[in-house]
Computed example of a mutant assay.
Amino acid sequence: MQGVASFLAVAWVLGLGPAAWAAPSQCPSPCHCHGDLQHVICDSVGLRKVPKVSEATRLLNLQRNSLGSLPTGSFSEMKGLISLHLQHCQIREIAGQAFKGLKKLVYLYLSDNEISAIKPGAFEDLTELTYLYLDSNRISDLPRGVFAPMINLFILQLNDNRIRELKPGTFAGAKDLRWLHMSGNEMSSMLPGSLDDVENLAILHLDRNRLAVYPSTAMSKLRVVEELTLSRNPMKTIPDNAFQSFGRYVEKLHLDNMGLEKFSEGAFTGVTALKSLHIENNKLKALPRSLEFTTIQNLTLSGNPWSCNCQLSPLRKWMDSSRHRPDADEDEEGQKGSAPLNRRVSGSLSR
């Protein structure tokens, strides 16, 4: 009952009031229906194919059923759907035009399946789709233009798949995409032009991939990134002008646990709004001159073999200023430990 209640709550948030058209005569067996059959809940009821529901249905929950695949036209009679939940359904393939007719769909949840193939045209008609969740599947390749119908897509979740490469045209059409999550894939390459169609990204998560070289060219068209996560990619260096194209907007950078050995001197050129920088557990000995500390509020830098010389003097001045002074204890060797505070810094620099 708790799951049913939560879905009803989502429905009311969406403003799904009584239907303006006649309701169907009965609820599909063995599902539970609510709100004049607008909300159809079929969670964990042993279904092996998509049931027929009314055109009046706004929310359809098919979680935890063994559907296997989504054939062409699986939802063609459900023209009123706004929210469709297909998590944990053992889906292996999405056929072309699988969602044909769903021109009002806003939320599509396909996480935690076994999807390895998305056929061209699979997302045809999803012009109103705003939130797409494809986490925890087996997707290794994204066909060119697969997201093209989604002109209103805002959040795309592709975490924990097997994507190896981003190619030009992958995100063609999805010009309003703002949050792109691709953590935990197998990406070793982002080809030039692969992000040109989504230059308005605000959040980009690429952590836990296999990127050995910072993808400067691929990211050069991004303009307003506020948060970039590259943690746990095997990069040794960050080049000059790495963040310059979106430097006026970027506030959070996650560059920890990468094996980083060096920032080029101009790596942070143009970065003027940075508030949070995470560079812990790397192999860094120095910080570049282009890194400005005036806006930083949260800095984590422990687990690096720092060389405490004049190159680190801007950091020391920032740490020792009355506004930023960390209330840290010193160990027996005179080293400062982690020190959370209003202006948080953690690290190990000699006083």
Rank of each mutant, 00 (worst) to 15 (best):
2 Q>E: 11
3 G>I: 14
4 V>G: 07
7 F>H: 06
10 V>H: 15
10 V>Q: 15
14 L>H: 09
19 A>M: 04
20 A>M: 10
25 S>C: 10
30 P>F: 08
33 C>M: 09
40 V>G: 12
49 K>M: 04
59 L>F: 06
61 N>A: 08
61 N>S: 11
63 Q>H: 06
65 N>Y: 02
68 G>Q: 02
71 P>D: 07
72 T>K: 15
73 G>K: 10
77 E>C: 02
78 M>C: 11
78 M>E: 07
84 L>F: 03
94 I>P: 10
95 A>Q: 04
95 A>H: 07
101 G>V: 09
104 K>H: 12
106 V>L: 13
122 A>C: 12
125 D>A: 04
133 Y>H: 00
135 D>W: 15
135 D>A: 12
135 D>S: 14
137 N>T: 00
143 P>I: 10
146 V>K: 02
148 A>K: 11
149 P>N: 05
150 M>I: 04
152 N>S: 12
155 I>T: 12
156 L>K: 02
158 L>V: 03
164 R>Y: 00
164 R>K: 12
165 E>R: 15
165 E>D: 14
166 L>G: 05
169 G>M: 12
173 G>N: 04
177 L>I: 00
179 W>E: 13
182 M>T: 10
182 M>D: 11
183 S>R: 05
187 M>V: 05
192 P>G: 08
195 L>W: 11
195 L>D: 03
196 D>Y: 08
198 V>H: 00
199 E>A: 13
199 E>Y: 12
203 I>G: 05
206 L>A: 01
212 A>S: 13
213 V>P: 02
220 S>D: 03
225 V>H: 10
227 E>A: 01
242 A>W: 07
252 K>I: 12
254 H>L: 13
256 D>S: 03
257 N>F: 15
261 E>N: 08
268 F>I: 08
269 T>Y: 03
274 L>P: 11
278 H>N: 14
278 H>W: 07
281 N>E: 09
282 N>R: 08
285 K>V: 10
286 A>G: 04
287 L>Q: 06
289 R>G: 09
289 R>A: 03
290 S>E: 13
298 N>H: 05
298 N>L: 03
307 S>F: 12
309 N>L: 10
313 S>W: 14
315 L>P: 07
319 M>V: 13
319 M>R: 15
321 S>A: 07
323 R>A: 14
326 P>K: 00
336 K>Y: 06
342 N>M: 13
342 N>Q: 14
343 R>Y: 14
349 L>T: 02
